[in-house]
Amino acid sequence: MGEIFGMPVQVLMGQLAIGLINGSFYALLSLGLAIIFGLLNVINFAHGAQYMLGAFVAWMLLHYLGIGYWPALLLAPLIVGAIGILMERFMIRKLYHVDHVYGLLLTFGIALILQGLFLNMFGVSGQRYPTPDALRGMVDLGFMFLPIYRGWVIVASLAVCLLTWFIIEKTKLGAYLRAATENPELVRAFGINVPVLITLTYGAGVALAAFAGVMAAPVYQVSPIMGAEIIIVVFAVVVIGGMGSLLGAIVAGFGLGLVEGLTRVFYPEASSVVIFLVMAIVLLLKPSGLFGQAR
């Protein structure tokens, strides 16, 4: 095989594939954040904790009830989404009329409490979650062995991202949603229950985080600190894509995964900061983000 920039093509392609896998998680998580911010104007700092919760719910379903991966893929987002709905109904809603910062502080507090609770119960060592039988093994792509499960992560998250984007941007339900956030009074006048719509939207955003958590369980260890580690990166992704822009979140998620993968090949030491470097540059050149509109 040949070389590109002095790097064997094999290594380069492998790293790009891995970048795409990480990008899948970034995209799923930043999409949820973007929905919640774009439609509710809440900076949901609990998103990382809800992702962790998704992974733990899947783990608990398996260990205490013997419910496997496939049902968990549906059940965990439903359960965690329901918890999110309760949070919105009884806590976050009270802060809609004040500055964004208060919502951020509240959700940050919730994130720390959840993380602390799970640390207390499970300790910091990760819990293992086995790869489902149907997705075990590897495929030989010629340039690398791709674990089948990771391939599934890319496909599934791309599908979920596009479906979500389609529902919100192209369907009637999505139109109501967008209208309800632009002008709640008017939409209410049409006989639509706006508060319920808002609550369900928050629940859906949280469910996306939990879905990402279940997807992540067999790849990373199920650990109380898994959310805290990824949330900062995901916020950077949302900022780069443009706060509140759904397409921006998806494109930036996958794109930055690739950028990170490439950095690991050429200058590994910078791989943990490259996303923030991109964020700084994007903010300097286009403060509203790549796909964002200035508000």
Partner: peptide
């Protein structure tokens, strides 16, 4: 050699380099 920051969650790229 590959050096990773403390507390990394993803080792895939280092492992692929090791493999190669």
């Amino acid at each position: 050699k590959s050096r990773h920051p403390l507390g990394s969650t993803d080792y895939a790229s280092y492992l692929l380099q090791a493999q190669a």
